[in-house]
Design a protein around this nucleic acid. Structure first.
Lengths: 197, 197
DNA sequence: GTAAGCTGTGAATCCCGATTCATGCCCAGC
DNA sequence: GCTGGGCATGAATCGGGATTCACAGCTTAC
């Protein structure tokens, strides 16, 4: 039956996702993926043209999940919410999710990858920055936030939150998991950086 | 004479540095480095235990140059300068240098590298973040800046400036080289982010 | 002048994971 | 029950760059 083939394909995808979450891209060799999926190495090539293509598919689906989580966080706010509240909701969601699954966050944000996967990452970060830039523009239009180069602010916020949360400079890398404290400090940083009152 | 050997060693270092500045680490294969230095591939191993070791040395010397440039920028200010002015001087210097040599900045900040070189990079970024954190702490002590988690703010600033200047989200990646405008916008961002009045 | 010890050479070798492919297995259709 | 086609196998192959090493040339010491 075709369902068997579909099952294999999906087992391969989820094996790859699991391995990446656990040990990064390095841990996800063709052999390891196949083994965890319970098939032979060659079988992977019955379902994907290359390892890279499989990775692209995994990466894309994980990014979509993350992106909808952030959009949902913004959408869940009442109509009357300020632009600043929306930004805080988006960045706070990002932060909480990243802290809950640091290995995955590192893989999505910073870990070295093949060029085609990297292209997906850039697209993801760009959509994320756009989301923020749009929020900033709305806040400026509403008179809540001061005039500024929204693209640069958005890029700096994406980079800054990424570094603070998953980079080697992250305070988390040093001491314990005061996750809530980190999120709070990051909110303060973001609020000030965008010029909120 | 020993001087010949020294000459070769330094030619190898500078060949590697040039290649990295021009085309990133990928362009700096052992063969390419040796060729540009005017020697055979095997010769590299008369002077360095491995390619990685050579890279570490190149990376370290470039980082030292960058770091002293930033320290010098801070030190050049009069005694009476505010903490905020010092921070602006450091980050402005970083920004100007990165914009002047984007390929090198990318190699120093974001390009994937071997683990031992990456360790150097992390150490460099950590020193840089410390420089900023110290400035923040001084500003807080002097009552100029509000209380905050200085390590997190410093990490976010390093990451944010890096992304805004050399990352794929950088406004520079999209349009022309309004370098001065970018630096100005970044200064605004930094000033607000640290909570300057 | 010659031996000892450098430095330089570059083709051969190693390494290691992705990718291929000849072969075997299973099941549907007849 | 036989057969055709698709899926699975996994050992063999490939690829590409780092690394080695047997050999050669030059310099210095005595």
């Amino acid at each position: 039956m075709g369902t068997v083939a579909t099952g294999t394909r999906e087992r391969l995808l989820s094996a790859a996702r699991d391995l990446i979450e656990e040990g990064g891209y390095g841990a996800a060799s063709v052999l390891a993926i196949a083994e965890r999926a319970g098939v032979a190495a060659g079988t992977l090539y019955r379902h994907f043209a290359s390892k890279e293509e499989l990775f692209v598919e995994v990466f894309r689906s994980v990014c979509e999940r993350e992106e909808s989580a952030m959009r949902a966080a913004a959408a869940a706010l009442p109509e009357s919410a300020t632009a600043q509240q929306r930004l805080q909701a988006v960045l706070g969601t990002f932060a909480r999710r990243a802290l809950r699954n640091p290995r995955l966050a590192w893989a999505l944000i910073a870990e070295p990858v093949d060029p085609r996967v990297d292209a997906e990452r850039i697209a993801y970060r760009a959509r994320y920055a756009e989301l923020i830039a749009a929020g900033l523009a709305a806040g400026i239009a509403a008179g809540e936030l001061p005039e500024q180069n929204v693209d640069l602010t958005a890029a700096a916020l994406v980079g800054g939150c990424g570094e603070a949360l998953v980079g080697p400079l992250s305070p988390l890398a040093a001491d314990g998991p005061d996750a809530d404290e980190i999120v709070a400090a990051l909110r303060t940083f973001v609020g000030r950086a965008v010029g909120a009152p």
